[in-house]
Design a protein around this nucleic acid. Structure first.
Lengths: 132, 132
DNA sequence: GCTTGACCTAGAGCGCACTCGAGCTGGAAG
DNA sequence: CTTCCAGCTCGAGTGCGCTCTAGGTCAAGC
């Protein structure tokens, strides 16, 4: 039991694939992951924590490009805190917007469902125009 | 002023591009759009209405493949009402789940923002481990 | 009558975010 | 020892949902 998780374990833990984890590292979302004596990656807690945040950012629709930008800022140190905060605040707003849009669009779907249910079991509408 | 909208007008109205409208027709999301004397598409109200629904379905994350399936059912007539209803209900559930997930993930982003704000203007943390 | 601009078709191309194939290595279990 | 599995690298491939190019037609405005 060495310390840290293998790529497979880490992948399982954060809900991504091993492929994706290696790719995230390659594109600069993760720091180069330390290797064991055989050259295999060992993910530390800090790597997993970063991944936890990254997955939330992705899941809320942040493009990988922007996440890379964010991580670049992280690497640049404290001087970029304000910019990172701003990024996150902008993203937060975008997510709220997204939720709002979803709710609005869902209302349309709901009305459609109501209409389907309203006609359920009713005979009529033989040759009337079919509404999607 | 002929009746119906040109592809450009229809696109503008539903918030898609003319390219996309033609492509939607090609993949079977729209019925073949009637043409004017010069062979140009004229979108009727019913086409626009269908597009309005389709855009909501897309915007809530339904894959085009499923939308095509849905429209196929529409074309098959009343016999498929139940299946269409079921599709919509399943999709509705998926959207609710999506909103839920977004809210959960947003909470993580929010905590991150709080931490950034908590340290705002504070000097310390010279050489401490940088947290993303 | 000419130009302009929107439209037409068929098919190619693109951006994104992974995902996988091929060929190899190395530690662990029977 | 051999078999096996997980991991390694590099580069290519995939699926989705558009988006654009090329080469042409047509009708309206100057």
């Amino acid at each position: 039991m060495e310390d840290g998780l293998s790529v497979g374990e880490a992948a399982a833990k954060v809900g991504l694939t091993a492929y994706t984890l290696r790719w995230y590292e390659q594109v600069g979302l993760l720091e180069p992951i330390p290797r064991d004596s055989a050259g295999r990656r060992r993910y530390r807690l800090s790597d997993i924590e970063r991944l936890d945040l990254l997955t939330k950012m992705r899941a809320t629709g942040m493009p990988v490009r922007d996440m890379v930008r964010y991580i670049t800022l992280v690497r640049e140190g404290d001087a970029t805190r304000a910019e990172r905060l701003a990024m996150m605040e902008r993203h937060r707003t975008a997510v709220l917007q997204q939720i709002d849009d979803l709710q609005r669009d869902l209302a349309v779907i709901d009305r459609k469902i109501d209409r389907y249910r309203g006609f359920e079991g009713v005979a009529g509408k033989k040759a009337g125009p079919r509404r999607p």
